[in-house]
Simulated assay, not measured.
Amino acid sequence: MQSLQALFSDPTAWAALIALVIMEVVLGIDNLIFISILSNKLPEHQRKRARRIGISLALVMRLALLSMIAWLVGLTAPVFDLGLKGALDAAGVPSFETQFSWRDLILIAGGLFLIWKATKEIHHHVDPTPAIVTADGKAVATIAFSSVLIQIVLLDMVFSVDSILTAVGMTDNLAVMVIAVVTAVTVMLIAAEPLANFINRNPTVVMLALGFLLMIGAVLIADGFGVHVPKGYIYAAMAFSTLVEVLNMLSRRARSQTS
């Protein structure tokens, strides 16, 4: 307890905590969008349960990885090298490289899975598969709860590795990392229901969110190949696209009220 009091009496610890919470919340948005889109494919009475389980598993994975920081940091050690490198920039850093660590392989696999899943969902929304209809005329969901949960767990794993390695890169204080991760996941838990309902009510937002997931998948693959795209550019593009969609929604609402 005394060590915690000493820690948080230090202004630099507070600065690190605030910066890390913001970063973890921003990184958690990607995870939350994926969970919201997948859970909305389930029957309504199962959606909240799927979201809560998915976010709870995200917290468990992040805390488990924090308890194994030494092993996690070891994931950044090179495993094999294909010997290919891109042109060097002014700082002497190659534009890409093929020296892969376990972290790189996890990010590449996660990025490929995200692109595959987002592409499949876009195809489903453009050319929807007919739903199974019962005798009383009600449509029945064609996706199993376990299937949704497995997909959520797989992406939770990828986002958790990225999240914790980001935290390790920003501070070496375990207490700050734990508090930041718990705070970020709590925000995800609070925002999950409103975000999922908003996405469900606005079909065009689903396509926008799937576009975000495609972009995030491409960034994960690029990161795995040593091409580090500044996160600020990615989130600025996402924010601009969201603003355009909000203006479109307001425009549609205004036209519907005047007609």
Rank of each mutant, 00 (worst) to 15 (best):
N173P: 00
A192S: 14
S9E: 10
N202A: 15
S36T: 13
D223K: 14
M188Q: 05
M61I: 10
V206T: 14
R51H: 13
G111E: 06
A109G: 10
S101Q: 02
W71R: 10
I55K: 05
L112A: 12
G226Y: 10
S56I: 08
T258P: 00
V181R: 02
L208E: 11
Y233F: 15
I22M: 04
Q46L: 15
V25L: 06
D10A: 02
V140A: 06
M23H: 02
I190W: 10
S36M: 11
G232W: 10
E193G: 14
V168M: 06
V227H: 07
V161Y: 07
I122C: 05
I37W: 04
A139K: 06
F80G: 00
I18V: 11
F145S: 12
P94V: 12
A135N: 02
N197Q: 14
Q5F: 14
Q257K: 06
D10K: 02
G137E: 08
A222L: 15
L208D: 01
A50Y: 08
E97M: 09
G54Q: 13
A184S: 14
M177T: 09
G226S: 09
L7A: 01
F159W: 09
E97Q: 15
D81L: 07
V185C: 01
M207K: 03
F100L: 02
S3Q: 14
A70N: 10
S163A: 10
N40L: 12
D81T: 03
A77R: 11
N173K: 05
E193S: 15
Q2W: 03
N248M: 03
K48Y: 15
P230D: 14
G86D: 13
S9M: 09
L247I: 12
A87Q: 12
M177E: 09
D127V: 12
I164P: 07
N40F: 09
M170T: 04
T119S: 00
R52Q: 10
I179C: 00
G111N: 05
G74R: 03
H123F: 08
R49E: 14
V219R: 11
T98W: 03
I122F: 07
A191W: 05
W102E: 05
F8H: 09
F198C: 11
V176H: 01
G224W: 11
I221W: 00
L38H: 09
S146G: 11
L7R: 02
A236G: 01
W71T: 13
D172Y: 02
A16W: 01
K231M: 08
P128K: 07
A13W: 02
F145G: 08
S259I: 07
